[in-house]
């Protein structure tokens, strides 16, 4: 069924980088306004799944629909917060300029950003608590602060879907709290949020719904449904004890 009631629909998705598929026959649907976490061990295909949802990777078979339309026709409808490591931090650009990049899709080619664009950028920087660093060169920030600026850029884009690739990886407590506040506020505003996450200990606390991935989709649903011992032991193999403790806890 093709329906625009769903923000994202993934159907029978298979993606291969070589002879072995990174994702095999993955299907799920994400409703508008949901806060969804993608979990799974290293190399499980979490980032590949996110890139497939953005239309970045070539699919062997399967479809990705965004508001009922093929993802390739919906560029700009999804705002993306990549992992921090993909950027050159010596680039001559300030925090405010990075956040303004989120508005580029709304600007006419010859016009400077309007007062409204500047206000949106200021508000987004305020949301991620980075207003005091507007004039700072991006490389002069800590890892967590850089992550927050990327979030401000994505928010400034004004998209209805936000995809975040490991936003909590290696960040300080202040950033973690700022990101959680932003997620809560975005959810309240009806934005659909999909987050790649590696920490099982916090996953059930942060997300309404989880997708447990390891090449295939093992489970999709509320944390109580996904956090079952037999599922986790199959997906995480030798590290079962940690999760047994987690389930008990």
């Amino acid at each position: 069924m093709v329906s625009s009631d769903y923000a994202i629909q993934v159907r029978n998705l298979t993606v291969s980088y070589g002879p072995k598929p990174a994702l095999l026959d993955v299907s799920f649907m994400i409703q508008k306004g949901e806060l969804v976490g993608i979990i799974g061990p290293n190399g499980a295909g979490k980032s590949t799944l996110m890139k497939a949802m953005l239309g970045f990777v070539k699919r062997d078979i399967g479809d990705v629909l965004v508001f009922g339309k093929p993802v390739e026709q919906c560029r700009g409808a999804i705002a993306y917060v990549p992992q921090r490591g993909t950027v050159d931090w010596d680039f001559p650009v300030t925090v405010a300029d990075v956040a303004m990049m989120g508005r580029y899709g709304h600007l006419k080619w010859w016009y400077n950003p309007s007062k409204k664009d500047t206000e949106i950028v200021d508000r987004c920087l305020e949301m991620v608590r980075m207003s005091d660093f507007k004039k700072r060169q991006i490389g002069q920030l800590s890892g967590g602060q850089q992550q927050r600026v990327f979030m401000a850029r994505a928010l400034a884009q004004g998209a209805q879907i936000l995809l975040l690739d490991e936003p909590f990886a290696g960040v300080d407590a202040a950033t973690e709290s700022a990101i959680l506040d932003v997620l809560a506020e975005a959810k309240k505003a009806g934005i659909t949020l999909v987050v790649v996450h590696h920490d099982l200990a916090t996953a059930s606390e942060y997300f309404d719904k989880l997708l447990l991935v390891k090449q295939r989709l093992y489970a999709a649903g509320p944390p109580s449904l996904v956090f079952r011992q037999e599922l986790l032991s199959e997906v995480y193999e030798g590290r079962l004890k940690v999760f047994t403790d987690l389930l008990k806890g």
Binding site: L54, F56, T86, Y104, F150
Partner: peptide
């Protein structure tokens, strides 16, 4: 600055 993000936009 960020080719991946630019493509997503």
């Amino acid at each position: 600055f960020d080719m991946e993000y630019a493509t997503s936009m």
